Amino acid sequence: MSDSAPATSEEPAAPRRGSRRVARRAALQAVYQWLVSATESGDLFRQFQSAGHLKGADGDYFRALVSGVMADPDGLEALIAPYLDRQPEHLDPVERSLLLLAVFELRQRLEVPYRVVINEALELAKQFGAEAGHRYVNGVLDRCARELRPAEAAARG
């Protein structure tokens, strides 16, 4: 088979556009639920799958985001703490969830450009957060990105 041959049904399909966006939205909801109710990870994953919250989402990305935050919340909060004006537990739960998710992505998902991580977090903050929460999230993430991805941040100005 040549490189120009059409894809067959046996080859994996390209991921649908926006599937990570849907995964991030579901991950925000899952991390929020975990923070406010301490739902166990297995229960959380089953609940989101059975309720249809992952329809159209990249399920593996959703699981990686949520698992990553749940595995190291203290480490992630230590990364954002220098840029906060209060203790993480006193943040609005939506903003706290978004910051944890975005900092996890900045630290662990280097294939995702830092501007994409920040923009996705801002869109979710505008949709689910307090009225001016997106400004707060933007300020914290911008400073975290300079620390976690200095070369990328410097190259983008």
Rank of each mutant, 00 (worst) to 15 (best):
R16S: 06
S4F: 05
R21A: 01
A51K: 15
R107D: 12
R109K: 11
A57F: 15
D60M: 12
M1E: 03
L99F: 04
A71L: 07
L100F: 13
G18I: 00
E123K: 14
E89W: 00
V22P: 01
L110I: 00
P93Y: 01
R96E: 00
Y136S: 11
E131M: 08
L54G: 06
Q108R: 11
D58N: 15
A23N: 04
Q47Y: 09
P15F: 08
M1K: 11
P150L: 05
D72Q: 14
R16D: 06
V117R: 01
A14H: 05
G56K: 13
G139W: 02
L91C: 06
L65R: 01
D60G: 15
A30Y: 05
E77T: 10
R20Y: 02
L79S: 10
S41P: 02
E95A: 09
V117K: 02
L100A: 08
A81I: 03
L54W: 12
P15C: 06
D85N: 08
V69F: 05
R109D: 14
A130G: 07
C144T: 08
L110V: 04
R146M: 12
Y114W: 12
P82S: 13
A27Q: 00
V22L: 01
P82K: 14
P6I: 11
V31M: 05
P150I: 08
L98Y: 00
Q33Y: 13
R17K: 11
L84T: 07
A26K: 13
A71Y: 05
R86N: 00
L100D: 04
A57P: 13
G157F: 08
A30K: 04
E147Y: 03
R25E: 15
Q49F: 14
L141M: 15
A30L: 06
D58H: 13
C144Y: 06
D58R: 05
L110D: 00
T39D: 06
F128I: 01
T8Y: 13
D142E: 03
L79F: 03
I80R: 03
Y136T: 13
Y136L: 06
D60P: 10
M70H: 07
A7H: 02
F104R: 10
V140Y: 01
I80W: 02
A23S: 13
A121D: 07
L65Y: 01
L148E: 02
S9M: 12
D60N: 15
E40S: 10
Y32H: 13
